[in-house]
């Protein structure tokens, strides 16, 4: 419109009007543009967690895991936990739970503990050959942070899916502090050695880590 008005003026008036840079249009109102990223972190589907869990238990079937896990009150039965993990129940149209709640974390904690304790028993306590270990597939020496970091990297890859070198710089240190605390707390062998108990604690913390529980 303005251009045609200018042309008209140019046509009607004497002489040439020099073009000038267009001035910014005055704003009439603000329009909010939503440029926030739409992606979100979401919980691992319970089916994925269960499949991974069975794999970490050496590829056992669920009922075999249940039998192996039960001694010393570590585990009840799968049917006690499945719904709390967020599994849908199509029989009663109970939808999948996609958000965590305290009870879900408590359930993941219970499952994490039994996995790590049993893995420590199998891999470390009875000194299973390295190539037959699923979880603690490393030399469990942890006299220093450097020694600890070797094993920690194995666990980090197992449960979080990436090497610890790419994790925040203080992560290994934090977990080594946990390791030291638990080791110091369990001076006597009961029923695992202090080191074994400490590794089980590190494992339990990693399997419950937000980066393990989220997609």
């Amino acid at each position: 419109m303005r251009a045609s008005a200018l042309v008209l003026l140019a046509a009607c008036g004497a002489g040439t009007v020099k073009p000038s840079a267009p001035a910014p249009l005055p704003a009439e109102h603000q329009v909010v543009l939503d440029t926030t990223p739409k992606e979100r972190r979401r919980m691992l589907p319970p089916e994925v967690y269960l499949r991974a869990y069975l794999g970490w238990f050496g590829g056992l079937a669920p009922l075999d895991v249940q039998n192996r896990a039960r001694p010393k009150g570590l585990f009840d039965a799968w049917e006690d936990y499945l719904s709390a993990l967020g599994l849908p129940d199509y029989k009663i149209d109970l939808p999948r739970q996609t958000q965590s709640n305290t009870l879900m974390l408590a359930t993941l904690g219970r499952l994490g503990e039994v996995l790590c304790v049993r893995a420590a028993e199998h891999d470390l306590h009875v000194k299973t050959p390295l190539d037959q270990r699923v979880v603690f597939a490393f030399d469990p020496k942890a006299g220093s942070l450097d020694e600890f970091s070797v094993g920690f990297d194995v666990l980090h890859r197992t449960f979080l899916g990436y090497p610890v070198r790419l994790a925040p710089a203080d992560r290994a240190q934090k977990f080594y502090a946990l390791f030291d605390e638990v080791r110091a707390r369990h001076k006597a062998k009961n029923p695992l050695s202090p080191d074994e108990t400490a590794w089980a604690a590190v494992c339990a913390a990693l399997v419950q880590h937000p980066e393990a529980e989220l997609y």
Binding site: P46, E47, L50, R51, L54, A61, P62, L63, A77, W78, E79, L82, L87
Partner: peptide, 9 residues
């Protein structure tokens, strides 16, 4: 949840 070949109860 993982198929009838892997029952959980």
């Amino acid at each position: 949840p993982l198929g009838d070949a892997l029952p959980f109860d």
